[in-house]
Design a binder for these strands. Structure first.
Lengths: 345, 345
DNA sequence: GTTAGCACTCTCTTCGATAGAGTGCTAACC
DNA sequence: GGTTAGCACTCTATCGAAGAGAGTGCTAAC
């Protein structure tokens, strides 16, 4: 069956009405509200066709229609009108990033806040992965007679600390010397791909401090493997409870459970990492069973041409895709700018 | 009216039955299940008396009774039997703390996990406040030509980093020297009470690096004021949704909202900071309106004789107080031991 | 191809009846 | 005087029937 212009109009009307009302949409509503110039009966015929094509579903015989996952997909891909954010919203977003660009934690918190506040959906941000961005500096801060704190700083501004044992009575100057050597050889490398040459040279040059080199390497690989290495930040999770489809406690629990163990979401969110542009994943397209009633709107943000992390919105399938896509797009662009500037500085 | 022995037994039976079942308790249940040797009619008389005394409530005429806040209070204060954890549970808890005592983040995460897993209630931990425990060390890790990372380590193991601008082209040795001076003068002081003498001496000794001293002091006060300075950690928040009293989405939302903005909880949790022993706050006794259906079981943990933070369990008023108190007590003691050992080391 | 008309289906709400749980009161009992 | 059996009463929860309402699909006419 061909999807002619009128069918497309009808589908779009149904999707948008359902997005707005959360109620199955009947033929009369469409005919009256969207002024297609035909009678409800005609709309009914079209709806029957659209249902046959798998684009619409009927909760039960005497209810209206709701979009199927496939229907949403078609809507997002070809029917949805791209909207631009209002100048006011744009200004607000830019402003936030102009103020603070130093502390990465604050930066991401603000990003979450913007995403949530402008859309009322749950916001997810995948932070700069420590393993993918190059080491900038490794510092050793003396603590007690026999311990020091190792501080790792990456190009993207990620900072991590770990305790480290040092030979008792080692002089502070020696520690500084060691951190200089460590930094010199590891600088510019990414943690997931430390070069063997670099490691060999470290052992050579710091032969007297073998244990420190060993601990350092162990700590670095530990940081790589740890959760903080690619932290998932979540905000506005509760807004999902305002959506009528999650009034049911058990559905709500399933979604909120993902936030409790936020690692489950990491993969879903980072699925399109490295792909440019805004990605929309609808319902069953999500890997996670628990997300089958949700849609994810995500985009990778960049430092120059390197993917750094992901920003995303998670809402019900019945979400305002136009708005969500627009917001995610702007936030991604702005964030990419910020990160790209940092590396240039 | 006098609260004689039998009334106390009846009240205890009602509280415990209601805790277990979440259903209003009738006179027959009490008479049969708790073998007081009297008939339901007698129990009914006692119940009427207890209600008159404000210890019980009746949802409606033909339902059984439930404890009032005052009833719970009496139960917790004088009727509840203190229980000891099983040797197995004790062993498990000790074991966790024996393994890892270095990274404070991991330590607290494990504490949360223990609290949740043994009780199935929401767990809260107030981390070591940075302002209250003495500075151990301040380090400056060179980053770029004109920036460095300031690392603050406190006695309790709290670590914070902040970016800092340095005069362009400053030598690394100078930075190390500066951090040595900073550490020397600030060591042992707490951030909320930096001595004026120390600050004066810093400006004296580091006259050439006035801007660095200024920034350092600013950063330190910033850390004091920031959220991380006394971070609230939450775990197992969703378990509250398993409680029948929170099946209602709006009640659930109120509670979960507190987790979203976790700062709201800080004050409630730290209310008894510095008081030794386990504290129980029931229903309306809580400062927060949203906690009126909840009880909080909390205890301060210590580093020597100094209060460091708080561990707490948050559950429905109808919570298993015996278990909760026992768990919080053991966790507090163990955690205090760990922190006290750290300072000795 | 479009539309009016209509029978039909399904859900949701309302209402009344009923069962069940639990109470309070009274009168008898020890 | 405390205790208890008996009983009427109250309130809730559940179930089924009835009716309203929304929306459909089909048919026949335009």
């Amino acid at each position: 069956m061909k999807l002619d212009e009128r069918k497309r109009l009808v589908l779009r009307a149904i999707v948008e009405d359902y997005i707005a009302s959360a109620l199955p949409v009947g033929s009369r509503t469409i005919a009256r509200k969207y002024r297609l110039g035909v009678s409800p009966a005609t709309i009914r015929n079209e709806m029957a066709d659209l249902e046959e094509m798998g684009l619409l579903e009927q909760p039960h015989t005497s209810a209206g229609r709701i979009p199927s996952d496939k229907g949403y997909r078609l809507y997002v891909d070809t029917l949805m009108q791209r909207i631009n954010l209002s100048l006011d919203e744009l200004r607000q977003i830019r402003e936030i990033y102009e103020r603070r660009t130093q502390e990465i934690e604050a930066l991401i918190q603000e990003t979450i806040k913007v995403l949530c506040d402008t859309t009322n959906y749950m916001a997810l941000v995948l932070g700069p992965g420590v393993s993918a961005t190059p080491v900038k500096r490794i510092g050793l801060v003396p603590m007690t007679e026999k311990s020091a704190v190792l501080v790792l700083v990456t190009e993207a501004g990620f900072v991590a600390n770990r305790l480290l044992e040092v030979p008792e009575g080692i002089r502070e100057e020696d520690l500084y010397h060691i951190s200089g050597v460590l930094s010199h050889h590891l600088q510019g490398l990414t943690l997931d791909r430390l070069s063997l040459t670099a490691i060999r040279e470290l052992y050579n040059e710091l032969a007297r401090y073998r244990s420190i080199v060993e601990q350092t390497l162990e700590i670095l690989s530990g940081i790589c493997a740890s959760q903080e290495s690619e932290r998932v930040w979540v905000g506005g999770a509760l807004r999902i409870l305002d959506q009528p489809e999650f009034r049911d406690i058990d559905k709500a629990k399933a979604i909120l459970g993902l936030i409790e163990d936020v690692n489950l979401l990491r993969e879903s969110v980072s699925n399109f990492r490295g792909k440019s542009g805004v990605q929309v994943t609808i319902g069953v397209e999500n890997d996670l069973e628990d997300l089958k009633d949700c849609s994810l709107v995500s985009a990778t943000y960049w430092m120059g041409s390197k993917p750094v992390g992901t920003v995303a919105l998670l809402g019900p399938k019945r979400m305002n895709y136009s708005k969500a896509v627009a917001v995610v797009e702007v936030v991604e662009e702005t964030l990419s700018e910020v990160f790209t500037k940092v590396v240039g500085a």
